[in-house]
């Protein structure tokens, strides 16, 4: 039963199975719905992957030193910390965040009119790493000795769970796609089983006049494969259109606004209809040949 046979078909062979409008519509609808969900799961997976990569790269190469000291010691301790950082291998640069930058970081919580200068806010130093990075434990001990008010935050405690969560989300997306493919297989198997049972007398008659199993199976397989392909193509097109009109990811775009495809990722949903058709082909063929074995 080749792909060419499935696509080209044999009009006379197709006619041996009577048309079943209602079942056909249900199969097309189920395939469309499953393809729609699969494309969304794919978009979720890609978005999670991008998020994980971004967090991984952005957070891995930077860290922060927070200096909490009395106001009269703040400048001295900041300079001391910069000296230590200057002498630390693996540190590419260290930069003291300006008052405006610190205010920008606090704005989401306290609003834009926060008088940062009048508040006992710690001074932040952004540290950019190079190569394999610095020895965090060594730097922490040295800061402890030379800059008592400094606390090193290498983002590890943030980065690891965030990246792990994003990775898990990506895995769940892939798992969802596999689950959708399996469910599609189950739905098609049930629909094919129902069609085969409804046409049991026709199958018996065809066997008795000399039809081979593969001939009878082909009539059902081709029908269900084409229905699934059409339904999945419609579902995929609809899902791609729905994702295309989602709001674009802006500068403050979170995960949700980043849901979708970028660049060549847009080609990936095109895999869904042929994949669904293959699942349908395999499921119907298996169901048909199993049913035919019960017929002499």
């Amino acid at each position: 039963m080749s792909l060419q046979t499935i696509i080209m078909g044999d009009p006379r062979a197709d006619r041996v199975v009577p048309p079943t409008g209602f079942t056909a519509n249900l199969t097309v609808f189920a395939a469309a719905a499953m393809a729609f969900l699969a494309v969304f799961a794919m978009a979720l997976s890609f978005a999670s992957g991008r998020l994980a990569d971004r967090w991984e790269s952005e957070l891995a190469q930077s860290s922060t030193i927070r200096i909490s000291a009395p106001a009269d010691q703040m400048v001295a301790q900041t300079e001391a910390a910069l000296r230590v950082l200057d002498q630390t291998p693996g540190v590419a640069s260290a930069r003291v965040l300006s008052e405006a930058e610190q205010q920008a970081l606090l704005t989401p919580w306290f609003g834009p009119d926060l008088p940062v200068a009048n508040l006992p806010i710690p001074q932040l130093i952004e540290v950019i790493e190079e190569g394999a990075g610095y020895d965090a434990e060594g730097l922490r001990l040295r800061l402890q000795g030379e800059v008592p008010g400094a606390v090193l935050d290498d983002h590890t405690r943030w980065r690891k769970p965030l990246v792990a969560a994003a990775e898990r989300l990506r895995t769940l997306g892939v798992f969802s796609i596999a689950l959708i493919a399996a469910t599609t297989g189950v739905i098609i198997t049930l629909a094919a089983g129902a069609a085969l049972a409804a046409n049991a007398q026709i199958i018996d008659a065809l066997r008795l006049i000399g039809a081979r199993d593969v001939y009878i199976a082909r009539a059902f397989v081709r029908r269900f494969t084409l229905r699934t392909l059409i339904g999945a193509a419609a579902g995929t097109a609809f899902a791609m259109a729905a994702i295309a009109v989602l709001p674009p990811a802006g500068g403050e775009g979170g995960f949700l606004t980043g849901l979708g495809f970028r660049g060549v990722e847009w080609f990936w949903p095109l895999v869904v209809p042929p994949l669904a058709a293959f699942v349908s082909f395999w499921a119907t063929r298996t169901a048909a040949l199993r049913r035919l074995k019960q017929v002499t």
């Binding site: 006619r15 041996v16 009577p18 048309p19 007398q201 026709i202 018996d204 008659a205 066997r207 008795l208 006049i209 000399g210 039809a211 081979r212 199993d213 035919l292 074995k293 002499t296």
Partner: peptide, 25 residues
Amino acid sequence: SRDDVAVARRRIGVVHQDCRFLDHL
């Protein structure tokens, strides 16, 4: 084999009591 049976049946014409036609053709 099942294919052998199918091929052999092409050399045997069977008239069943209930005829067993495909009613939609």
